Amino acid sequence: MKHPMIMVLAGTLLATPALAEDPIRVVANAPEPTAVIYYGDLDMARQAGLDALNGRVKKAARAICLPSLNDPTREWVRQTECYKTARADGYAQAEALHAASMRGEVLVGAFTLTGQ
């Protein structure tokens, strides 16, 4: 009797969506700071979906551009510029996805954010 319950539990765990994990993946070995932001779990046709994606963009930009606030001033200025650029790029991509979804276009599920 224990085996069927184990099988059901295992099936439930395997069926859990991958997005139960963090929807942001930082790529450490890229030539420049990069993050992949997943949005397949968001309804991009709604403002709430856009707001949630913008929150992910902000978190990803922080992760790739502001690893430490204890750096010398010159490095901090470079990191701040990276953050602003990455965030602006991510917000523009999110807005374009929202507009495409409003037009009924099919969306892929992730985009790449790069810090410079």
Rank of each mutant, 00 (worst) to 15 (best):
P72F: 10
C65H: 06
M102L: 13
N54S: 07
A10W: 03
A45Y: 02
I24V: 15
Q79F: 03
L14E: 01
G109S: 02
L50N: 05
I64G: 01
Q79N: 14
L13K: 03
V57L: 03
H98R: 06
M44A: 04
R78D: 09
A100C: 02
V36K: 06
Y83A: 02
G55S: 11
A99I: 13
L107R: 02
A100W: 10
V36A: 00
E105K: 09
R74F: 10
A60Y: 09
A61W: 09
P17T: 08
N70D: 15
M44I: 05
Y38A: 13
Q116E: 10
A100M: 10
T16G: 12
I6E: 07
V108N: 14
T112R: 15
V26H: 05
V77D: 09
T112E: 14
V106M: 06
L13M: 15
G49V: 08
T34Q: 13
A99C: 00
A52H: 05
V57I: 12
P4V: 00
Y39H: 09
A60Q: 03
L107C: 07
A28W: 00
T16M: 14
G104M: 08
Q116V: 02
A10T: 10
T16C: 13
G90C: 07
T12M: 15
V36N: 03
V57E: 06
L107P: 09
A10R: 01
P4Q: 03
A15D: 10
D71V: 14
V108E: 15
L69I: 10
E81T: 11
K58A: 12
K84C: 00
S68H: 03
A48D: 13
Q47C: 00
D43I: 01
L19T: 07
K59P: 00
G49E: 03
V77E: 12
S101T: 02
E81Q: 07
R25K: 12
A10V: 13
K59E: 14
L53W: 11
F111I: 05
R46H: 07
T73L: 15
V36S: 01
A88P: 02
A10M: 11
A96R: 15
M44N: 06
P72D: 15
R103K: 14
G55N: 13
H98I: 01
A35P: 02
L69M: 14
A45I: 00
S68E: 04
T112H: 08
M1R: 07
A35C: 05
L42F: 05
T112N: 08
A35M: 06
L66K: 12
M1S: 11
T112Q: 15
R87F: 07
V106A: 13
C82R: 09
T16W: 14
N70P: 03
A48F: 01
L13V: 15
W76C: 02
T112L: 09
K58Y: 07
I6T: 10
R62H: 09
G40K: 04
K58I: 01
V108L: 15
A63D: 14
A60W: 07
A35L: 09
